[in-house]
Amino acid sequence: MTTKTHRSPVSEFRLLTIPLVVFLLVFLGFPAIVNLVYSVSEVSFETLRRPEITGFGNFAAVWSDAAFWRASWFSFRFGLLTAVLECALGLFLAIFLAPLLERRSWLMAILMLPLMVAPALVGLMYRLVLHEFAGPVPYYLWAWFGASLSFLGPGSAFWTLIVVETLQWTPFAFLLFYMAYQAIPREIIEASSMDGARYHHRLWYIELPLMTPTIVVALLIRFIDGFRVFDNVYVLTGSGPGGSTASLSIYIYEAFFKQGAIGKAVAASVILFAASFAVLYGLNAIAARRKGATR
């Protein structure tokens, strides 16, 4: 006679989640704990295995470091501007090119090409393209106007970086918006046309409201990506003269590897983590409240 053991759904759930929990503990929990220890320690490459806990000096150093706030402001501005520009351009293209793409779908592959290039390579490419003596853009500016813009000078580097980032990532926003636009039920559009709605009315009162969730998600994703920018900025301008184009990622990287200030770099990343958590928690709370209000 055999005995069959029955497990409750709860215990089965617990059993099945063990691998995931172990994975999270090992690959996220352990580094997080190590980082928390380093952030309150005097630590260098020689003392990685025996950091000396010294308190919150690293946090104080970061907090009082003008370069940290400058990098934060750079990342915020960069993230916000690129997210808005990419989404605006992506939205325009999605709506403007939709009729064409319905007939020539292969054009989509061409539009997606910038996404296929690694950001560091994009930085390298523009470093060449914008070079006064080797790049085609300054060459033609000299040939046609007898002068060339300083693309990576102190006054223009920020805007050049914005344009480079926008050119690369607009296709991502475009893809999301095009899919959302295509998902709008045709019956609604036809019904509004029959009711006499003109094109801009339809766009403003029907299509854009229906695409709003996608627009919000795209803005958020692009802001996060822009905020943590590293590769193409680092390749194009480094941290810029006087640190003027250092994003937070570059600030942390340079503190860690270039200055050997491991505790300070980790403290900065902990502050960044706490700030990101607070913002996301806040957004989640707002979304939950709005959801509750609409029920």
Binding site: R127, L130, H131, E132, F133, A134, S150, F151, L152, G153, P154, A157, L236, T237, G238, G240, P241
Partner: peptide, 21 residues
């Protein structure tokens, strides 16, 4: 020196000099 010199390192400087300008 070129206005973009603030983003120049070894390779850019060589390219500028090699251009004959």
């Amino acid at each position: 020196s070129p206005r973009d010199s603030l983003s120049y390192e070894y390779a850019e400087a060589n390219a500028a000099y090699a251009s004959g300008q």
